[in-house]
């Protein structure tokens, strides 16, 4: 059985494509577990190329943003490449308001990300 409750991973060559399984990332328990599942991709699995696909995500809170920032930081520290894709206009507005669009590497689609990894 998968050890992941909040993400689904598919492998494409040596690239891990990660989908969120929750459409709304709000409650504190979900955010805590999701954070750990993301961190494990770097710290336990030692994945080096990750595409984080937001196509299922309709809403996320600032607490969830905190986990994404920590995840991005852990990836950079481990010399892993992390690209976020398929971000809705509303979620992109969240990134833009908080200037995270300048911190995160973002591409329109999964194909765009796979092309540069």
């Amino acid at each position: 059985m998968s050890r992941h409750r909040h993400i689904a991973i598919t492998e494409s060559a040596n690239i891990s494509v990660v989908q969120f399984t929750d459409s709304k990332i709000i409650d504190s328990e979900t955010i805590l577990e999701l954070g750990q599942e993301l961190f494990d991709l770097i710290e336990t699995d030692q994945r080096k190329k990750i595409v984080l696909n937001f196509s299922h995500v309709e809403f996320l809170s600032s607490a969830a943003l905190g986990k994404l920032i920590t995840f991005d930081k852990k990836a950079k520290r481990a010399n892993a490449e992390l690209i976020m894709t398929n971000i809705s206009p509303e979620i992109f507005q969240v990134f833009a308001i908080t200037n995270l669009d300048k911190l995160f590497q973002i591409k329109d689609s999964e194909a765009d990300a796979l092309a540069v990894l």
Binding site: S61, S62, L65, G66, K67, I69, T70, D72, K73, V94, I97, T98, N99, L100, K102, L103
Partner: peptide
């Protein structure tokens, strides 16, 4: 939280949003 030097701080984005 939006200042460049604070971008990597994990908290404090609620008020900006």
């Amino acid at each position: 939280c939006c200042a460049v030097e604070n971008l990597e701080a994990p908290g404090g984005r609620g008020l900006a949003l």
